[in-house]
Design a protein around this nucleic acid. Structure first.
Lengths: 118, 118
DNA sequence: GGTAGAACATACCAAAAGGTAAGCGCGAGG
DNA sequence: CCTCGCGCTTACCTTTTGGTATGTTCTACC
């Protein structure tokens, strides 16, 4: 039942980084292992529920590893796996594209009255 | 009101290629101007309503141009703009990543019982 | 005449994604 | 003792997204 859409790898990537937050989360994990609350602060605007959800999914895809320090109060951090790092690298051009065209895109979003805080 | 998420360009890119279909559509337009019905066939699995919707948005973002041949029955085609081509280029690594890891990711999706026709 | 196909529009619906709010066990700090 | 913060969980609700079904205009084909 493979549809004709199975020729390009984008469907695969989208299955991994789909959603509003995953790419952002990965981006903010580039500097090494990061604690849950720190990720939350860095990403900004994401709710705890959604963040955990996304982190779990990324861990399930072996893009991240969760490290529980077994302390109380809880100390847990998340880090990119080598596999995850290859993903982040594939994400870089898109990130740069975004930076290059931030102003332009922001302007367009405004004009189509879909204004956001971009 | 800029949140801390405004440092990386991914939010901008996501604003343009967000959604389940846009990256696929762009991919399938690489070979030049393509007619509506042909895009639909190539992408596969997308409904007319959604395709038109996505195409309109991409046109609004000046990623695509719509060319109406003013014929009846209707003949219309869509093509990447130079701007759109830069986007597609930024998408290439992600596409390659997907192809390299198709099997692995497919396996993981299965194991997490989220099976799809990937 | 009936049908098919082009490129849409429109109304309505279901599913998914995301958001809000509350609470939990527990230790540190006031 | 009260509260805060940690890393979650749960229940519930709203928004977004995508999908289905149908209709439209017109031409070509059988």
């Amino acid at each position: 039942m493979d549809g004709p859409s199975t020729q390009c790898g984008l469907d695969v990537s989208l299955a991994v980084i789909g959603g509003k937050w995953k790419p952002l989360i990965l981006y903010h994990l580039q500097d090494g292992p990061t604690r849950f609350s720190e990720i939350r602060r860095r990403v900004g605007g994401i709710s705890e529920k959604v963040l955990i959800q996304q982190l779990r999914e990324l861990v399930a895809m072996t893009v991240l590893v969760r490290h529980d320090h077994h302390q109380v109060p809880p100390v847990v951090d998340y880090a990119l796996t080598p596999f995850g790092e290859t993903l982040v690298e594939a994400l870089v051009p898109l990130c740069e594209w975004g930076n290059r065209n931030r102003a332009e895109v922001a302007g367009m979003l405004q004009r189509s009255s879909k204004a956001a805080s971009v």
